[in-house]
Design a protein around this nucleic acid. Structure first.
Lengths: 380, 380
DNA sequence: GTCAATACTTGACTCGGGAAAGTAATGGGG
DNA sequence: CCCCATTACTTTCCCGAGTCAAGTATTGAC
């Protein structure tokens, strides 16, 4: 957290994290919330205030019958520090600058004609320069960069083990990006980054367990269980897209049969419609216009997604599920069937798990990357 | 851990837990394993030895080239304390006495003609008396009892929220059982208890994430993720039996379609064979004798189980999966199809997750209950 | 103005754990 | 045989995070 400090008192991390994710809280409220004494919170908060990360808000009006000294809630100084987040896709870099409160301050993107490591790094350097040297004067108050990449990523070492879209194998992205940008870099899988962002700053705040499902060409899922992100011991986790929901369904590129993705991925939907040359958007238009056979494809797709989500609910019992992704452009067509499939396959109380829909634009994925670097900063 | 102590130094719990689950270790090895200083281990171990929970083994012969003082490994004194575990089924109580090392010392059972709470408690009292006052003189060194019940159980409060087999609603089983037996009682869901036992003392030792699948009339699953048991926020977790693997499959009693349990539960198999009056055992015999249509039913069942297990592997990426349960009497018929279904639907590296088979007799479920009380004791 | 109520701060203390130096027990080489 | 390197364990001293209890601050109600 501080440039000098080796490791920081747990209470400081806890206080800062709680104020970040749950908003302004008085010291007394923090003490109750964290199971600490008031004295411990006072001591932990002092250096955070001195360093400019927290500020005392004006005393609020008090409720309740009796009197008493008004609380002075502690709030984040969002401007104290900024964080760059970049999502690396196969054909584009999308970058944002976020403040400490994870609000996006500015964004930019660069096309990526070539996904070679060298080229991506060069473009990344340019993108970061554009973001930090543009209006806002973020350069001086920015020390960290988060990168979100699809595929198998080791967050601890910042190694990209394998990324199918980029065709990367064992790229030490963290080291390379730190050399190019001069910032402290954190690398994370893109879905996990987005899940983290929702867990800290979105719908998943306060949830002990939480799932985020992304619908698009691929169908993915990020999981938080017992308050911690699920990483999977073989680097595989959240692969909801390859759960089999129909033994007699279409073959999937993964070798499985009737995978959710092979039924409900945008490519799979186009294929199932079976009209040569038709794009996904055109299929959506046809279905909205009432074309029965195309609508049926969307119905099956939504049902498959719902079944997959129910599998998540049945297995880990999250307290919330958020559905998101690019494929949500067709959400009006999918939603009733997603909900129907979910309700049918969710077991017992799992059916009561709230399912919310949030179209998260690509910029939000970059924000997810920034969020991961905020986390790394707070935990440092 | 100690009758007097309110809370115990974390290092003591860590040392005792590690020796329990990983066997005798020297202080130096423990320090490395736990990331503590040698001094901290020495200090934590002393009271544990004094109280008789640990003992120093004779120095072992040393390997390596140089010389050096031989290590004196610390081992559990298994006889120091005993634990009763009872599994409550719809028609029987199965009880065991385990030592501190979770070895079963003696067992007993009582039929349960009536699953009413009153009657179960009376029988439980008799069963515990039988176990503790029989040969072995366990009574004086036993202070804890673990109960395993199917259904929705709150381990923290020992409340059985709902148990379908027993037709129980909101039974404060912990309090009731403590009154009857005079022991400190822990209550846990049966599958979770068995999973805990395998995680601490079985195949799952040392695994950060681990899944146990039980195959029988119902099909269940216990999950350990990031080293912690998954409980599910609505009391639902590990319901692998109600994952839908065939949208066109048979209706399930849960309201779903093509649930694993509706295809591969023992009742479902009997129904799918479709010969009135035929028992499960007779179906097994027919299939073993080569009856093609019956064999096909087992093939479909195995495939469905394999798909469900693959869903677990894809979502949480456990480092091991253990398959168990009564239905394993037919495991020769199911196994190849379970493995085939798993391999087909497991995504990428998830397919490398080792799948082991362990028929765990009912007594092991009672041992699971005892294990939960051992955990409660160690953490106390 | 006093009083109860609530929020926060201060200072003495506790306790878990670390660092480093000391002791114990072994085998190997002179 | 005596030293010495090597490894295992113990002891002593210290630090720092957190608690407890007492004190200060700030409000509304009477």
């Amino acid at each position: 957290m501080f440039p000098e400090a080796e490791s920081v008192a747990p209470a400081m991390t806890a206080v800062l994290t709680t104020v970040l994710t749950e908003g302004p809280l008085s010291r007394v409220a923090l003490a109750r919330r964290l199971g600490l004494s008031q004295a411990a919170v006072t001591k932990a908060a002092r250096p955070l205030i001195e360093q400019g990360y927290l500020q005392e808000l004006a005393a609020t009006e008090r409720s309740g019958p009796g009197a008493g000294r008004p609380a002075s809630p502690l709030a984040i100084c969002a401007d104290r520090e900024f964080f760059v987040g970049v999502k690396i896709t196969g054909d584009e870099l999308i970058g944002v600058v976020c403040d400490l409160g994870a609000q996006v301050r500015t964004s930019a993107h660069r096309p990526l004609p070539d996904a070679g490591v060298e080229h991506v790094l060069t473009e990344l350097g340019h993108l970061v320069d554009d973001l930090l040297d543009g209006p806002g004067d973020y350069r001086t108050r920015t020390r960290r960069l988060g990168l979100a990449v699809s595929g198998d990523v080791d967050r601890g070492t910042g190694l990209v083990r394998y990324s199918p879209f980029l065709h990367w194998h064992d790229v030490p992205l963290q080291d390379l990006a730190e050399k190019i940008t001069g910032l402290t870099v954190t690398v994370e899988n893109d879905v996990k980054a987005l899940t983290t962002a929702e867990h800290w700053f979105g719908e998943g705040v306060g949830a002990e367990s939480f799932a985020l499902v992304t619908v698009g060409t691929g169908i993915g899922c990020g999981l938080v269980v017992n308050g911690r992100l699920v990483s999977g011991s073989h680097g595989v986790a959240g692969e909801i897209g390859h759960i089999g929901v129909d033994v007699n369904g279409p073959a999937c590129h993964c070798g499985g049969r009737g995978c959710v993705e092979a039924i409900a991925g945008t490519d799979a939907i186009v294929r199932a419609v079976g009209r040569p040359g038709l794009t996904f958007e055109q299929a959506v238009t046809l279905a909205r216009a009432g074309d029965a056979s195309v609508s049926a494809v969307f119905a099956l797709a939504g049902d498959a997604i719902g079944s997959g989500i129910a599998a998540v609910a049945n297995l880990v019992g999250p307290s919330r599920i958020v559905v998101s992704g690019e494929g949500l452009s067709a959400y009006d067509l999918l939603e009733p069937h997603i909900r129907a499939g979910f309700q049918r396959q969710a077991f017992g109380a799992a059916a009561q798990c709230p399912l919310s829909v949030r179209p998260l634009p690509f910029e939000q994925w970059a924000r997810g990357a920034a969020t991961v670097s905020i986390q790394a900063f707070v935990a440092a």
